[in-house]
């Protein structure tokens, strides 16, 4: 029942690394007069793992929330898998279907069991049959290591388990890109690893990922590039290697010295 789904669970991405799947060009975002994103230019290649770091309020969440239109950017272009984000609701939903998102506060649906959390969108959006959706959900729960929790409610799970359910829920839509907004910062220390392990496995399986996190171990293990943001700008981009040994900008050095 489970094995036939496994090969493509973590990614539909079969194309070669390097081809751009997300392109941000001259993106600006304002909240009233306040500029949250300034002049953002960034490309993300297929199967690339990007870690975004930066001080609080620097615009990290806003950046990834613009990519799936939870926030509307004010200037510039955002193209995801060849589709440009516009006000066209069809385009937006198309992009959201290809973009999974994991939130800091999990945002599981507390009135639904774990399995119903996972199957809701596949059934509503992709019109999968109940059986297919549940088989797939069980396979995903297996992969994130908690198949025995399928019939429980989110409130009965630990934080780490909840976040793993949230990851499974996103993956059930078979997205091409996964966005993570500080997925471990609401977790007790002993649960961080179980979530990071799932994310590392995901990255190694070839998923394209943008991860906002301060977990430098994760960045070192799987990030292809690290993006450092401050005051809405991208200040510095480079390999993890570059960041940990030889950061160029003063702000980067200051920030890294504070968190490392």
């Amino acid at each position: 029942m489970t094995t036939e789904h496994n090969p493509q669970i973590f990614s539909d991405a079969t194309k070669a690394k390097g081809e751009a799947i997300i392109e941000l060009t001259d993106v600006d975002k304002f909240f009233g007069d306040f500029q949250a994103l300034a002049d953002i230019n960034m490309n993300v290649g297929l199967q690339e793992v990007i870690v975004v770091i930066g001080p609080s309020g620097s615009g990290k969440s806003t950046l990834i929330r613009c990519i799936n239109r939870l926030e509307k950017h004010d200037r510039g272009r955002i193209v995801v898998d060849g589709i440009e984000l516009s006000d066209d609701i069809k385009n937006i939903q198309e992009i959201r279907r290809e973009t999974g998102m994991v939130f800091q506060s999990f945002n599981l649906f507390p009135h639904l069991t774990v399995i119903d959390n996972i199957t809701l969108a596949p059934r509503q959006v992709r019109h999968e049959s109940k059986k297919d959706a549940e088989d797939n959900a069980m396979a995903l729960l297996e992969r994130v290591g908690i198949p025995e929790q399928a019939r429980k409610f989110p409130g009965q799970l630990s934080g780490g388990q909840q976040q793993r359910v949230a990851i499974a829920r996103s993956l059930a839509m078979k997205p091409k890109v996964m966005l993570f907004d500080e997925p471990t910062s609401a977790l007790d220390p002993e649960m961080i690893k179980e979530v990071l392990d799932v994310m590392i496995e995901l990255a190694e399986g070839g998923m394209t990922m943008i991860v906002v996190t301060h977990e430098m171990g994760f960045a070192r293990a799987v990030a292809d590039r690290v993006v450092f943001m401050a005051d809405g700008y991208i200040v510095e981009v480079g390999t993890p290697e570059h960041f940990f040994t030889n950061p160029q900008e003063e702000r980067t050095k200051l920030f890294l010295s504070q968190i490392l």
Partner: peptide
């Protein structure tokens, strides 16, 4: 966050509201 989770999954507003 509940609404956003539904949106992020690509659900349309009516099913988000209903479900």
């Amino acid at each position: 966050g509940q609404n956003e989770a539904g949106q992020a999954l690509g659900m349309a507003p009516p099913p988000i509201m209903r479900r």
